[in-house]
Design a protein around this nucleic acid. Structure first.
Length: 875
DNA sequence: GGCTGGCAAACA
DNA sequence: TGTTTG
DNA sequence: ACAGCC
């Protein structure tokens, strides 16, 4: 063997299959998939050849169907200029099995694997399989793609784990050193406190690797992180000088771009720092940001007036630089004119002139972000000349260097500008007292609402566009009555499960709301509108002549319509379930309650908190509940009584139900039961000022959990509704690492404090798997039931936590309205983009785009700016 | 005339 | 897996 | 069971 190996004389290792799928056998044909790493076309080709000729050499397959996706440098590019230097090279070959290569490629695209080649081999057995063969081929391909993704994720986790282990070790020994020096109290150590300085044997994670136990790896990572946190607090208590600690923390952070270790183990070629696999969803946190923004205050830049030009910067970088500037004690100017020093990534005069006048620039010192980083790191204001951002300006940059002038005298300017705000886009921003600046540094300007607000240029809107995101749709339109009638049609179609028809009516409503500024007086006013066809014209004509629409009237006269729509108002009951329940013979919500076994004390939540709410109580309860009210009293007094009562009611009406077999399926203790209990509260609209109060309370609580967060109230409130069905809030934190898992932590706290009574839905998103490696926590959300302290009525509040990079797409995505969102996606699709609330992706190459402001979301999509209050495309 | 119409994630 | 949610 | 696109 050794001889053979030397004989083969290869410079590269043989391709090794990263994963092999299960064999699929169907009528004498066999399918099996393999996946190989391939960073270039040549590597892909080598793998294909190797599989076909060597691996399958003894028993050649009839077809070796292959597809590849490689991220590669564009010709003549270095990779140093950013993501634009890269492109995706993808392709496929059928090897006689027509169309199949493309199918494999499609699977790879949806599975978002990159830098791999997938080969599905088929041994043909003599029987034609028909189209089913494509399913087999795709199954094999999907198998191996998913396996590789899991492997990648696991390797990432293990790499993190071992680096965390190292840090932990170092921390332990440091801690012991400190202990032995400072005092003799050894008793209160955390963790294994064997004082011997033993060298840790490298942890054995091979079983995790073998079992591909991602869950376990994740648990271990969390455990290590917590351990480190504990050590850190201990260390801070014991040793006031934190330099050592910071060194370890920063080493941890530096290691965090875990994909780096992965990628490099696969190839000898060092990766450019801009390789998209390092950008993309899992962005490598800048190590300097980690302890840059949070480190101790310095005086290096005291009195230096800085302006940070945000053009060509990522949100993360902006955050980092603001943090550094704050830490260095610099004064951050809102206006270029006030500044002496400009931090910028722009290196070309033309580009700069779009933001700053040339004459102004000439009087300043323009440096790259590296200057700020280095100055803070070395704790000395470095000469600017070495960091000139524009070579044209390097003389003035050096000459205008402000730190050289005596700054100590200007004590007046060293007052902190403190642009810090914890805020929403609304006027009701919750301000932090100026005396206590947040420990996390100032909030980057781009995360704050724009000042002044964007103006909506009506002339740019296309009122006859097919997309509601190109139109201005006010809350109420001149044809509101007509819209309400059409919405009745929409609703019947919806509850009846006729989606297409429902969509048509919804479109019609949105078109009318967005395109007509005056009342429709004649059918020709409506005829020119898109989505208004013959049927809609007929209805509109009838409305114009008679003031009503017969089809709407008959619908409104139908008990079934009212039952179904009433049922669907309950959280968790959609059209299908509503129809099922109706089919069971249930017609009122009260019957639903008995059906689901809701007990009355569940129902009347408001009264439960205090029987003083007699008024609210009667208005909520229907007449049939007159006796129910009495029952509640007895429940509260004597709990023993309630069970027989409830059962009795249930039996009385539920006899017929018991005969239904599948009725039991729906009966389980579930959200529907709880939602039924809360229905009176949840049906109530929330006035704007209460929305604002909820927001204030939420921000105050959040400030204790994680200071420095930014938020925007979205949803109907932001669209200007006077009364809202629920409250939606989008949050982020300038430091991306602060947002991870924050949703869960925060909900836990609110729940413990009794502010949130139910969490119906808690999620970690794994959206936007656009690149090879999985990325975590693009968006987290919680749907909750919330009660303001001191209030009685429970409210639906949705919490959405976004990474700073995706903050504005999240805001746009959650501001709505529904129709506006659908059309945003549709519009984006038409322009080769994919929009959702956690990002914008260019379909061609899966490149992620992170708009830095809400306006930029619209710019990227090529849309005119539309004010939130004009996004009411639904009724 | 045939196809599309928004979408992903979490429950049950 | 289908249903519901935003 | 409605409308638009190709």
């Amino acid at each position: 063997m050794a001889n053979l190996d030397t004989f083969v004389n290869r410079t590269k290792p043989l391709p090794v299959s990263l994963s092999t799928s299960q064999e699929i056998r169907d009528r004498a044909s066999t399918f099996v998939g393999n996946i190989y790493r391939a960073r270039t076309l040549a590597e892909a080709r080598a793998a294909i050849n190797h599989l076909a000729r060597v691996v399958h050499g003894a028993k050649p397959a009839s077809h070796e169907i292959a597809a590849w996706r490689c991220m590669s440098l564009k010709a003549g590019k270095t990779g140093l200029e950013g993501e634009d230097d890269f492109e995706v090279i993808e392709g496929s070959e059928d090897d006689g099995e027509s169309w199949s290569g493309a199918r494999v490629l499609k699977v790879m695209q949806t599975e978002a694997v990159m830098d791999v080649v997938v080969i599905v081999s088929r041994w043909y057995g003599g029987t034609m399989l028909g189209p089913i063969r494509f399913e087999h081929i795709e199954t094999c391909a999907r198998d191996v793609c998913r396996a590789v993704r899991l492997q990648d994720e696991l390797e990432d986790l293990l790499a993190t784990l071992s680096s965390l282990d190292d840090i932990l070790d170092n921390l332990r020994s440091e801690l012991e050193k400190v202990k032995s020096v400072s005092s003799m109290t050894v008793d209160d150590a955390a963790g294994p406190s064997n004082s011997q300085r033993r060298v840790r044997k490298p942890q054995d994670y091979s079983s995790i690797r073998k079992e591909v136990d991602i869950a376990k790896a994740k648990r271990l990572v969390t455990a290590r992180e917590n351990a480190i946190k504990n050590m850190k607090t201990q260390q801070e208590e014991r040793a006031p000088h934190r330099k050592v600690l910071r060194r370890y923390l920063s080493s941890y952070r530096i290691f965090q771009p875990r994909c780096l270790s992965n990628v490099q183990s696969l190839t000898n070629a060092p990766l450019s720092p801009h390789h998209p696999s390092l950008q993309g969803p899992r962005r490598p946190p800048n190590p300097l940001r980690a302890d840059g923004a949070n480190g101790p205050k310095l005086d290096v830049l005291k009195g230096v007036k800085l302006y940070i030009l945000q053009a060509k910067m990522t949100a993360a970088e902006i955050g980092e630089l603001y943090g550094l500037a704050e830490r260095g004690g610099a004064e951050i100017c809102k206006d270029v004119e006030d500044a002496e020093l400009i931090i910028t990534n722009v290196s070309m005069r033309k580009r700069l002139e779009r933001h700053i006048e040339w004459n102004v620039a000439k009087s300043k010192s323009l440096v790259t972000p590296a200057w700020l980083r280095e100055s803070v790191r070395k704790n000395i204001a470095l000469p600017c000349g070495d960091f000139a951002a524009l070579s044209d300006l390097s003389p003035t940059t050096a000459a205008n260097f402000p730190a050289e002038t005596d700054t100590d005298g200007e004590t007046g300017t060293s007052v902190h500008p403190s642009p810090t705000r914890t805020t929403s886009a609304q006027a009701s921003a919750s301000h932090r007292p100026p005396s206590t600046p947040p420990p996390t540094g100032p909030i980057p300007m781009n995360l704050l609402p724009p000042d002044p607000p964007y103006r909506c240029d009506m002339s740019k809107l296309d009122h006859l566009s097919r997309f509601s995101c190109c139109r201005a749709s006010p809350l109420v339109c001149p044809n509101q009555k007509l819209c309400e009638m059409l919405d009745v049609m929409r609703k019947t179609r919806e509850v009846e499960g006729e989606d297409r028809s429902s969509l048509s009516y919804q479109r019609a409503v949105s078109v009318i709301k967005g395109s007509i500024s005056e009342e429709i007086a004649h059918r020709r006013d409506a005829e020119k509108l898109p989505y208004i066809g013959t049927k809609l014209i007929t209805m509109i004509e009838e409305y114009l002549e008679t003031g009503h629409i017969s089809e709407v009237e008959t619908t409104l006269a139908s008990p079934r319509y009212h039952t179904l729509t009433a049922f669907t108002t309950i959280y968790g009951i959609g059209p299908k379930t509503a129809r099922q329940l109706h089919g069971l013979g249930l017609t009122t919500i009260e019957q639903l309650e008995t059906y689901y076994g809701v007990e009355h004390h569940d129902v009347v939540t408001t009264a439960e908190h205090g029987s003083l709410s007699g008024e609210a109580q009667t208005s909520a309860g229907t007449s049939s509940e007159g006796s129910a009210k009495a029952e509640i009293q007895t429940h509260v007094e004597a709990n023993k009584e309630k069970a027989p009562d409830a059962v009795a009611v249930k039996e009385a009406q539920g006899v017929m139900l018991d005969s239904e077999e599948d009725a039991r399926d729906v009966m389980e203790e579930n959200w529907i039961k709880i939602a039924l209990g809360l229905r009176h509260d949840l049906a109530k609209k929330i006035p704007r000022d209460e929305v604002e109060e909820i927001h204030r309370v939420v921000m105050k609580e959040l400030d204790d959990v994680e200071p420095g967060c930014v938020s925007t109230i979205v949803g109907g409130y932001r669209r200007g509704k006077e009364e809202c069905g629920d409250v939606d809030i989008v949050f982020t934190h300038p430091n991306p690492e602060r947002t991870r898992g924050l949703c869960k932590r925060f909900m836990r706290r609110l729940y413990d404090k009794g502010i949130v009574t139910h969490v119906m839905h808690l999620s970690r998103f794994h959206a936007h798997n656009a690149l090879r490696t999985t990325h975590w926590d693009s968006l987290e959300k919680a749907l909750s039931v919330f009660v303001l302290p001191g209030h009685k009525t429970r409210r639906r509040v949705d919490f959405i936590f976004a990474q700073p990079d995706t903050y504005w797409t999240a805001v746009v995505g959650w501001t709505g309205s529904m129709m506006f969102e659908r059309d945003l996606r549709l519009w984006a699709k038409g322009r080769g983009l994919k929009f959702d609330s956690s990002g914008i992706t260019r379909r061609r190459d899966s490149k992620l785009i992170f708009p830095k402001t809400e306006k930029e979301v619209f710019d990227v999509l090529g849309l005119p700016w539309i004010d939130p209050t004009l996004r009411n495309a639904d009724l």
